[in-house]
Design a protein around this nucleic acid. Structure first.
Lengths: 121, 121
DNA sequence: TCTTTATTTAACATTATGGTTAATTAACTA
DNA sequence: TAGTTAATTAACCATAATGTTAAATAAAGA
């Protein structure tokens, strides 16, 4: 599965990893934050591997901060997926009106920054 | 990989299958049509398996017509992916302007409102 | 009927994925 | 320094995914 888009889709093909992304969509989190909801179901090394998959797929970026490894969403990969999806828009156009509605709510004050920086350490 | 969305993303995580979808986005095609571009690279049974993956993921529907098996895109699965993507829209908003432009070309009567404030501040 | 075309199934090999436990590295803390 | 916390690596195992070749099925056509 060499190509980037395949890696990205492959990374998204797991509920644990999608849940991690959902968590990261609300703000940065380090490995143990991401692990917390899953430690009843799986071990920490398993978490490490999932995070590595997300990282290699370009969906997240992991940095170093003391002994912590803060992770954040990497928008490029999401854009790649969104761009690929475009060619199939005609097939899911039922959501068109909702999308347009969304555009109308967001458009008047584009780029409201600093909104999602909750949960820092 | 039991859940539907994982199955869908898993099916998309392969360039051969994505190429088949691209072909199907231009209209119905039966198995040998879908196979044609890949018969130098892989066998027909391999193709059959790829198609089965797409089918199980709900991305395509395969019917019977004499000895042929016409396949077509199944929009529901694409909508599911698009819906999941929505929560990450804020991360790929560079494509926002292009998307808005698209909206205008597609529904000229509904014209996107509130556009005048974009980019101010 | 015999043959051809379209497609699938069976049986199998190889590699990838996702998990485990035990050990290790690295940085802060008492 | 010794101990604790955060995270990774190593070694391993089971299962799923992806491909192969050979054989089977099913409908159309001579």
């Amino acid at each position: 599965m060499q190509d980037t888009l395949s890696q990205t889709f492959g990374a998204l093909a797991d509920p644990t990893r999608r849940a991690m992304l959902a968590r990261l969509s609300k703000g940065e989190a380090n490995v143990s934050d991401l692990a917390a909801p899953f430690l009843k179901e799986m071990s920490l090394p398993a978490i490490t591997k999932h995070i590595k998959v997300l990282e290699k797929a370009g969906l997240i970026t992991k940095t170093k901060e003391a002994q912590y490894r803060p992770c954040k969403i990497n928008k490029e990969a999401f854009k790649d997926v969104a761009d690929w999806m475009e060619q199939y828009r005609v097939f899911w156009e039922e959501s068109f009106d909702r999308l347009e509605a969304y555009l109308k709510t967001v458009s008047p004050k584009k780029k409201a920054k600093g909104k999602s920086n909750v949960g820092k350490k």
